[in-house]
């Protein structure tokens, strides 16, 4: 006999109330990050020691700007999801856990936004 309600079974969201959403988004972002990371690492190699104008020329090209924004968004989302699992595994005080999760998500959001806006401002400055 199952103690789960028929509605709960249909929704299939389990005790964490989000089903496989977290797991699946971690995988989707990781697959997107494979080519993005290879591109970013190659760019980093070519930018070692780059001066201000070389850097802005690179950041301001539409292709690099677009890929950078995708890298930042996918990367910080992936990082927030990963850090969430680490915090949930090791931090067992409920209040501290929720507070730290909020802080990590807020920081990831602010950092991703700062990075994206920096790229856009260089792109539109021309």
């Amino acid at each position: 006999m199952s103690l789960r309600s028929p509605l709960g079974r249909v929704r299939g969201l389990g005790a964490a109330r989000e089903g496989v959403g977290h797991w699946w988004h971690q995988r989707l972002t990781s697959i997107a990050l494979v080519p993005l990371t290879i591109w970013f690492a190659a760019s980093l190699v070519s930018l070692i020691g780059a001066d201000y104008f070389t850097m802005r020329e690179w950041m301001g090209s539409p292709l690099a700007a677009g890929l950078l924004i995708l890298f930042l968004v996918a990367g910080f989302y992936h990082a927030a999801l990963g850090l969430q699992v680490v915090i949930e595994d090791y931090l067992h005080h409920e209040g501290a856990k929720i507070a730290l999760l909020m802080a990590v998500n807020a920081l990831a959001l602010v950092l991703a936004l700062t990075g994206v806006l920096a790229v856009l401002s260089v792109l539109f400055a021309g």
Binding site: G75, L111, T114, G115
Partner: peptide, 14 residues
Amino acid sequence: GAILLVYWLAAAAS
């Protein structure tokens, strides 16, 4: 380390 990456990008915009 991604904090440093964002610092680097923001610096280029500043």
